[in-house]
Nucleic acid binder design. Sequence first.
DNA 1: CTCGACCTCTCGTCTAGATATCTGAAGGAG
DNA 2: CTCCTTCAGATATCTAGACGAGAGGTCGAG
Lengths: 262, 262
Amino acid sequence: MAALPPGLLGTLDPTSDRAVFRQIADQLREAIAKGRFAEGAKLPSEAELTDHFGVSRMTVRNALSILQSEGLASAEHGRGVFVRPRPPVRRLASDRFAQRHRDQGKSGFTVEAEAVGSRPEVDSLVVREERSTPEMSARLGSARKVLARRRRYLLDGKPVETATSYLPLDIARGTPIAEPNPGPGGIYARLEELGHRLDHFEEEVRARMPAPDEVKTLRLAPGVPVIHVVRTAFDTDGRAVEVCDTVMAADAYVLAYRLPAT
Amino acid sequence: MAALPPGLLGTLDPTSDRAVFRQIADQLREAIAKGRFAEGAKLPSEAELTDHFGVSRMTVRNALSILQSEGLASAEHGRGVFVRPRPPVRRLASDRFAQRHRDQGKSGFTVEAEAVGSRPEVDSLVVREERSTPEMSARLGSARKVLARRRRYLLDGKPVETATSYLPLDIARGTPIAEPNPGPGGIYARLEELGHRLDHFEEEVRARMPAPDEVKTLRLAPGVPVIHVVRTAFDTDGRAVEVCDTVMAADAYVLAYRLPAT
DNA sequence: CTCGACCTCTCGTCTAGATATCTGAAGGAG
DNA sequence: CTCCTTCAGATATCTAGACGAGAGGTCGAG
C-alpha cells in the first residue's frame, strides 16, 4: 500500500469535539474546493484513507458517504470514489412556450436541446385514460377521468426529465392529442387548432430529494435532488386545459424566468 | 423490550438479492406512505428494529440513514427517529415585485409572510462594499466594487432563506440603499426614486444539496435540498442595477410563476 | 494475436460489540 | 411545591474484522 502524497490531506485534531468522520469529510471537501482533486478525479481509496488517518474503515466510509450525500462525490463499485464533475447545465428559456416555436412545429424540449448542441430523445411514451386524482380535479376543474401522456426526455442518451400531461377527456378524447405522436408543435398546437387559444401558464416549482423510482428512472447519482414543476395551461376563457407534472434531475437544469416589474 | 405490534412491518426476504438494509428501508418507506406512521410520529427505535428483523444495529442504522437522506425522516439525538412532517409551504407569488407592493411600502417577503399568517423576521443584516467577482461583473456590467447587502429571513423564528443583493457602487454609494434600513418599500423603491425605473427581472433557478455552512445558517435537516435563485433587476435603459443571490430551504418554499403564452 | 482464466484492488454489506452523549421521566432533598 | 440528581432509553460514534462483488490488468493457452 503506497502512502498518500504528503500535504495532500492534513491530520486529525484529537482534541476537537467534532466527530472524526466529519473531520475527514471536511478535509476532503476542502481539498476538492482547493482543486487538489480535479473534477472527475479519483479520491484516495478507503484503504489509503484508513492508513493515512489511522482510523477504521467504517469511519472512512462514513466520511465518504457524507461527500456523496452532498453531491460532491460519487462511488463506483470496484473502481473508486470520484469527484463529481459539474455537468454543463442546460437553460430552460422563459419563452419556452412562445407562439413562434409552436408555429415552427418545435417542442420546448427540442428547442432547448438544440440550443446547447445536444441530441434530444423522447422515451417510454404512454398515452391512456386514467381516473383523476383529487388534486388533479382541483387543478383541471372537475373532470372525472383524464387523458394522461407520460414520457421521459433524454439528452445525449442520459435521462434528464420525466413529464406527465393531464388533459380533460372532453377536450382530448378522439383528437390527435390522444395519439402517441400528436404531430408537429405538440399538444399545444393541437389545443389551439381545437379552438382552445392559450392565454398563459402557471408554474409551481419545488425541490426535494427523489423517491427511489425517480432515482431509477432518471438514473440519479446519490445526492442529486429533483426539481418538481407543476404547470397548468389556461386558455383565453380562463379554463385550465392541461396540467403538466414534470420531474427534472436538478444537476441537469437551470430554470430561467423573466418577470415584469410593473 | 416490547416487541413491535404485529403487522406494522413485514419480514425480510432472505432469497432476495436486495441488500437487507434496503429491504428494511423499503418496508419503513412503504409503511410511512400507507400512513401507518403519521407525520411527526416516532419510528420504532433502532433496538426494536434490530429485534424485529434479527439484524445488527449497524444494518438498521444504515436503513434509517437512507430514509433521512431521502428527506422522509429525521433523527433526534436521545429521542428517536421521526417521520418528517411536510411543512406548510409558502407561496412565492409571481407578482412579488409588482409596483403596487412597492407603493404600499411592503417588501416581497413581508407580503408573502402575511399571506400565510406567519411572523416575518429579518436577521444578520450586513451592508458593506466588496470586490466584485468575475461572475458578478458579468451580470452587473463591469463594476469593480459592489455594495453587498446580506440578510437572513425567518418565518415564525425558523430561518428559511438567506439573500445577498449586489449593486454597482456608482448607483448605491451614499444613498439610503447603503444604509442598513433603506426605508419603506426596500431598495427597489429607492432605486426608482434615484431615477432607475425598473423594467423587468430575470431569475435563474437551481436546486442542489446545501454546503455545510448553509446547513448551519438555515438549520436544515439532513436530506433537505436548497433552491438557489439568482435574480437580476433591469431598469428601463436595459442596465442591470441589482443582482440578488438567494438560497432557500427547499422544504419551506414553493415558487410560483406566471408565464404568458404569446 | 486473441481470448479467457486468474489475480488484485476497490467498494458493498454485515456482524458484534464498546463508549459517549442527549432526553425525559422518576424520585429525593430542601 | 420546586429544584436537582439519577437513571433508563435512545441515538452518535467508533473499532476490527469477515465475506461478497465489480472492474481492470496480467499472462498463458490456443
